[in-house]
Nucleic acid binder design. Structure first.
Length: 476
RNA sequence: GGCGUCGUGGCGGAGUGGCUACGCAGCGGAUUGCAAAUCCGUGUACUCCGGUUCAAAUCCGGACGACGCCUCCA
């Protein structure tokens, strides 16, 4: 039985699909106004693994991940740079898609864009006004929080306490400081869409309620997102959704955040002003430097409700570990395969192997414990080493295919680990071939002083030589 | 202050009331001319204080501490 921790109930509970055999899942996506950073990757990678596992368990998964392409930050960027906002959002959404592809995130079925749903949003807001759950104020339309029973149930807040903490800083005709914008009336120079209340644009929270409604319906199985979105974003989504349709997501899953040396790195962190510091968090840089498969493994290496540390020590350890897994698999790592869980479970294997296999499944079944599951892959690889030759291939393929169910150990992953020598540097290739030949001659003559000198000097120059039975290889 | 997650060996990180997690690093060995890589072996860990129990890192209570949210953020 699949279980899942539900933020709403604060318990691990059975995952019971709204519609038998199907799962509808929504993940809050990025606002596309700047380069993606490492944190943007956590949600997609984790919930891709979740979706993959649910599919392996025989469920049909519709996985919606929106793109926020209307927002203050986008407008600001456009004003700053003079670039049309459409060009900005097109560029960064493409970057996001490219990153997902490199990370083997391929279960997302829908990428709705905010701008495609403005009409549905105004209709939805009209409905909220008709139900007396929203009202028109001087600068837009607002949600009336006081009318929402149970507001704050997700994040454990009480409206009164929140209001007490809010500074009364503006007098825009709000009924309560806790009320939030559904529709913002246009200010000069801003992009806008028509509405019954005048030209403007949607507020932040309404898009998700509307897009979940139109893709997944009033009630759906899983709403996912980063922890920092619990309040106010998800709380407000619930308010809107319940006001509109009487119900909303059944299960809320929140992933903890990517940290750097024990702390979250916010946009407002002073160090972010330093381009070099910022650069090391940019997703493109990270993937180029360490390889997408390493990052995927890192993000899945622990439990998703605990923070994952993204730092030099952690990431190097993961990369080494991944390299050894792939080495252990050998040619098996590159074979294409389309694993089917039931078939893997039916494989006749030794007791020890079956135990690890069962532990893998149990880990995933229990709140998607990817870290525990990955540990079992290591166990299986160790079993493969011990196993008789005849059984080894079966065990290796089992380990690999369980990994592949989570998007790990995919064909081509090994290539991302070797720092690619500047491609097609023919000159260097020829020089190195000569050097290795001369060194081999020296070794044949037992002139190890020369042999070692060559290796040491090349090492100092950044080239590593490894001697193997069938000759030496080099890399850098 | 309010809400939430959590406190495990050098580091990272799973965990079932009694049985080796796992990874990285280290150490010993095999192999190698020497290295590297690989393989084998190797760790009496569980914040503190009470309680429940035949038995608790695992359940309950308390303390202390960490991190996150409450403001842009994935």
């Amino acid at each position: 039985m699949q279980t899942v921790y539900n933020t709403l109930t604060r318990h691990v509970e059975p995952l019971v699909p709204v519609t038998p055999g199907k799962i509808g899942m929504y993940l809050c996506g990025p606002t596309v106004y700047d380069d993606c950073h490492i944190g943007h990757l956590m949600g997609p990678v984790l919930f891709d693994a979740v979706a993959k596992w649910l599919k392996a368990r025989g469920l049909a998964v519709r996985f919606v991940n929106n793109i926020t392409d209307i927002d203050d930050k986008i407008i600001n960027k456009s004003v700053e740079t003079g670039e049309p906002w459409q060009a900005i959002t097109a560029r960064y959404s493409q970057q996001y898609f490219d990153l997902l592809k490199r990370l083997h995130v391929d279960t997302i079925t829908d990428h709705p864009r905010c701008t495609e749903y403005v009409g549905q949003m105004t209709a939805y807001i009209q409905d909220l006004i008709a139900k007396d759950r929203a009202y028109v104020a001087a600068d837009g339309v607002y949600y009336d929080v006081a009318k929402q029973g149970g507001y704050g149930k997700l994040s454990g807040r009480k409206v009164e306490e929140m209001i007490a903490g809010v500074r009364v800083e503006r007098d825009s005709g709000l009924r309560s400081p806790a009320d939030f914008a559904l529709w913002k009336l246009v200010k000069p120079g801003e992009p806008s869409w028509p509405s019954p209340w005048g030209d403007g644009r949607p507020g932040w929270h309404i898009e998700c309620s509307v897009m979940t409604h139109h893709t997944l319906g009033h009630s759906f199985d899983i709403h996912a997102g980063g922890e920092e979105l619990k309040f106010p974003h998800h709380e407000n989504e619930i308010a809107q959704g319940e006001a509109h349709g009487g119900c909303y997501a059944k299960v809320w899953m929140h992933n903890n955040l990517v940290q750097f040396e024990g702390h979250k790195v916010s946009k407002s962190d002073p160090r972010m002003k330093d381009p070099a510091f910022r650069g090391q968090f940019k997703a493109l840089n990270v993937l180029d430097q360490f390889g997408a498969p390493t990052i995927r493994l890192l993000l899945l290496s622990g439990h998703y409700r605990r923070p994952v540390d993204f730092g030099p020590t952690a990431i190097t350890a993961i990369r080494t570990s991944l390299g050894r897994m792939l080495t252990a698999l050998g040619p098996v790592a590159e074979e294409p395969s389309a694993p089917i869980l039931d078939a893997l479970l039916a494989l006749p294997v030794s007791e020890a192997v079956a135990k690890a296999r069962a532990a893998f499944v149990a880990s995933m079944d229990e709140d998607f414990n990817t870290g525990g599951a990955i540990a079992q892959i290591h166990v299986l690889l160790a079993e493969a080493r011990k196993a008789p030759e005849a059984e080894r291939g079966t065990i290796l393929r089992l380990a690999r295919d369980l990994g592949r169910l989570l998007g790990l150990l995919m064909p081509g992953d090994a290539a991302t680990l070797t720092t690619e020598a500047p491609a097609s540097d023919d000159t260097l290739d020829q020089v190195m071939a000569l050097v290795l030949e001369l060194r081999q001659t020296a070794r044949a003559n037992r002139d190890f002083a020369t042999s070692d000198l060559i290796r040491d000097r090349l090492k100092a120059a950044g080239i590593t030589i490894k001697d193997a039975k069938d000759g030496a290889t080099w890399s850098r």
